[in-house]
Design a protein around this nucleic acid. Structure first.
Length: 537
RNA sequence: GCGGCCGUAGUCUAGUCUGGUUACGACCCAGCCCUCCCAAGGCUGAAGCCCGGGUUCAAAUCCCGGCGGCCGCACCA
């Protein structure tokens, strides 16, 4: 099996093909045909059920976001780098690292015009005058983060809280390559797990499951995470590494081609403190990232607090009354009133200042400069006190940390095809797990006469009515020879072919052919539906 | 974005160097015939020179430009 053959099959049979071929083609965009669309939907459904199963809630937010969102998230700043190329050695350099117009690598001269590497698609929202700038989202995650207060309330203020979103993401890649591997518009499936950093032991780690971990700068090792979840970055990270492997193997990707690779320090995204890529191996592309499980810490929620001023905290309940130490600034209002008058302004300003800082100022006998209504004041140590107070409290507010598994659905679909497509002698067989096969059932008359064709169409209509209500696709085919029809069905991974033969007319039984073994069993027509659904639903 | 190679039906491909009949063949696809279980066979049919300009009596073929693709470099937050 080569990737070229796979891509040809995908186009010929209707899984996917490059977009806009009518107008000369455009790299980084792919269309899904009927089979691809059906397969993709089933992969998405399976992913969704993997998370819903453990209590996740799903939302949908816009793909276009106003500028503020990405200003807060740091995406805007990250993309403002100017890249400049050296015309002598070809080295690409970030413009802010260059002091004069010479190349720090070879001393050659640099091109005058730098290029902006902004990987977000920019767009205008509303009328040109008074409109706002917007961007196509490069990840679905921000739509979840900015909704945290709503979601936390809707989730009855319980953590951990897992929020998922499936949808399109956009990255204006400089030069997309490798067909479907790097797209400019693609489908992501992301989960944000909000949790209390002081209480991470939510999940049982599966003892038996073995993962291949490639740690920073090290060799890959097979480990059972039960004994050392800290290897993966904590219980929640370990759990999601396992979940990723379970999901991929359920799609038919063998365990032997799945591994997890820890990001090197310099490889980490600006928001992540730790990240494991889940990679799948293929001959053609080597190890390809299909999912990333990142520890985003409190980065995003803190960023949105700072940008918006909105409260993105959660409430931690101690379950008992605790003594909580707190440092408070107490203004000496009598003295302030006597010497400065502007009591309320100064008191307010003192209250907003950092208590620890004021403490150290007071301890050294220094002065604090304060401006109130344009007038400056120098406040000496005797005008305020810094007190350590012990309160009693049964709750406190905190910013939750976030663990983020993020899956690339298009890449996963490609990997699923690559690892299920095989040649058996002369026949191409797509050995998809029955529950994700785009076409579940094909119905053939053995030959096109003797009433077998009309009987076949009748069976087809009945089965199609039943299966389509479950979202499953059923096909009827009477063209060519029976062998050719089996071959056509095998090529697109149809797990079951039902043939109507002369015996059907006598006793109401049909044959069910299994794709992988090609063996046939005879079943009564009334049992056919149950038989098909056993493994396909 | 830079460099190299490339662009003929849905797919693979002959033809391009050396301009000249109706652009070769295969697969796939559709219709009909045949066919009692794994791409049998027959007949018929649909479908193509990436786009634009130039040279020429004449361009798939030669020249220029554009677009797109593949590979390498860079990029991949």
């Amino acid at each position: 099996m080569s990737f070229e053959e796979l891509m040809k099959m995908a186009k010929r049979r209707g899984f996917f093909w490059p977009s806009f071929e009518t107008y000369g083609g455009l790299a980084g965009f792919y269309d899904y045909g009927p089979l691809g669309r059906a397969l993709k939907k089933k992969i998405e459904d399976l992913w969704r059920s993997c998370f819903i199963r453990e209590g996740a809630i799903e939302i949908e937010t816009p793909t276009i976001n106003p500028e503020e969102v990405f200003h807060a998230s740091g995406h805007l700043r990250e993309f403002k780098d100017l890249m400049v190329r050296c015309s002598a050695c070809g080295e690409s350099l970030k413009a802010d690292q260059i002091e004069d117009a010479t190349c720090p690598v070879c001393g050659g001269s640099l091109e005058k015009e730098g290029e902006k590497f902004n990987l977000m698609f920019k767009t205008q929202i509303g009328a040109r005058e008074g409109g706002r700038e917007g961007y196509m989202r490069p990840e679905t995650a921000q739509g979840i983060f900015i909704n945290f207060p709503n979601l936390y309330r809707i989730n009855r203020e319980k953590l951990p809280m897992t929020v998922i979103q499936l949808g399109k993401g956009y990255r204006n890649e400089i030069s997309p390559r490798q067909g479907m591997i790097r797209l400019r518009e693609f489908t992501m499936a992301e989960a944000e797990i909000f949790l209390d950093p002081e209480d991470e032991d939510y999940h049982e780690i599966e003892e038996k499951m073995e993962l291949k971990l490639l740690r920073r700068g090290g060799d890959a090792v097979e480990v059972k995470l039960k004994s050392s979840p800290e290897m993966a970055g904590g219980m929640m990270m370990a759990h999601h590494l396992q979940l990723a492997q379970k999901f991929l193997t359920e799609l038919g990707i063998p365990e032997s081609v799945i591994r997890f690779r820890e990001h090197e320090e310099e490889e980490l995204a600006h928001y992540a403190s730790c990240c494991w890529d889940c990679e799948v191996y293929t001959e053609k592309y080597g190890w390809v990232e299909v999912a990333g499980i990142a520890d985003r810490g409190t980065y995003d929620l803190e960023a949105h607090i700072k940008e918006s001023g909105v409260d993105f905290t959660a409430l931690r309940k101690f379950g008992e009354v605790r003594k909580v130490k707190r440092r408070a600034v107490l203004a000496n209002t009598e003295l302030i009133a006597r010497d400065f008058q502007a009591v309320n302004g100064i008191k307010k300003a003192l209250g907003e200042m950092d208590a620890d800082l004021l403490k150290s100022v007071k301890d050294r006998g220094g002065k604090v400069k304060i401006e109130v209504d344009g007038k400056g004041f120098e406040i000496g140590p005797r005008y305020f006190d810094v007190l350590d107070i012990e309160d009693e409290a049964s709750t406190e507010r905190f910013v939750p940390k976030v663990v983020e598994p993020s899956y690339g659905i298009d890449r996963i679909l490609l990997m699923v095809l690559a690892h299920s497509y095989s040649k058996e002698g002369d026949r191409w067989v797509l050995k998809l797990p029955p529950k994700i096969a785009p076409v579940t059932l094909a119905i053939f008359p053995l030959i096109k006469r003797d009433g077998l064709d009309t009987e076949g169409k009748r069976v087809y209509e009945e089965m199609s009515a039943k299966l389509s209500s479950l979202g499953l696709i059923c096909k009827y085919d009477e063209s060519g020879s029976i062998g050719k029809r089996y071959a056509r069905a095998d090529e697109v991974g149809t797990p079951y072919c039902v043939t109507i033969d002369h015996q059907t007319l006598e006793d109401g039984t049909v044959t069910v052919r299994d794709r992988d073994s090609t063996t046939q069993t005879r079943v009564k027509e009334e049992n056919l539906c149950d038989r098909i659904l056993e493994r396909s639903w």
